[in-house]
């Protein structure tokens, strides 16, 4: 999986003032795909994920316009997206979407093996405590531990401990 999280660009206007709209747009281009994947992995439907992504970046615009802290913005984006997604899921009850696990470009046999492995892993991930699951999903989207901590309001140590627990459980599946 290619790394999608490059450096954050900050737009500078002609008069030297930060162009917040440009900055938000740049971040949207950079983070939309991993954010959508994360939102889908939480169980949001595709259209809901897109709505939440829009809402997240509009909130980011307000955040930046109000001069609030801009350190760890990627973590901030995923935190807001995460919280908006959970609210939406609560409103909609159990109406969640299945994340399509089939990868393109495989032979039918490869797809069958791959899917069987995915199902095993998904079962393990689904059985993880909520926080551990979120940490793992965010790590899969390329977030650094510090950003995961910002997104889930956890300490660095707690993120590392959570990931260690989850990786141990996933390793069992891998070996089996």
């Amino acid at each position: 999986m290619s790394s999608v999280l490059g450096s954050i660009r900050i737009g500078i206007g002609v008069n030297g003032a930060p162009c917040v709209r440009e900055e938000v747009t740049a971040l949207f281009v950079e983070l939309r795909a991993p954010l959508l994947r994360y939102l889908r992995s939480l169980g949001l439907r595709e259209d809901d994920s897109e709505d939440v992504a829009q809402e997240t970046f509009l909130s980011l615009y307000e955040h930046l316009r109000q001069g609030k802290p801009r350190d760890c913005l990627r973590g901030w984006v995923f935190r807001v997206g995460h919280n908006l997604a959970l609210k939406r899921l609560m409103r909609k009850g159990c109406e969640t979407a299945e994340f399509d696990l089939v990868d393109g470009g495989m032979t039918p046999e490869e797809q069958a093996d791959w899917k069987a492995r995915q199902v095993r892993m998904q079962n393990v991930v689904a059985a993880l405590p909520e926080r551990d699951r979120y940490c793992l999903l965010l790590r899969a989207e390329g977030l650094r531990y510090r950003e995961i901590g910002e997104a889930l309001e956890m300490s660095l140590g707690a993120v590392a401990a959570s990931l260690a627990r989850s990786l141990n459980k996933l390793s069992v599946v891998e070996r089996g």
Binding site: M1, F99, D100, D103, G104, Q118, M121, L136, A140, G142
Partner: peptide, 8 residues
């Protein structure tokens, strides 16, 4: 784990 995620 990261590779197991679907590369949509």
């Amino acid at each position: 784990w990261v590779a197991s995620r679907p590369s949509t």
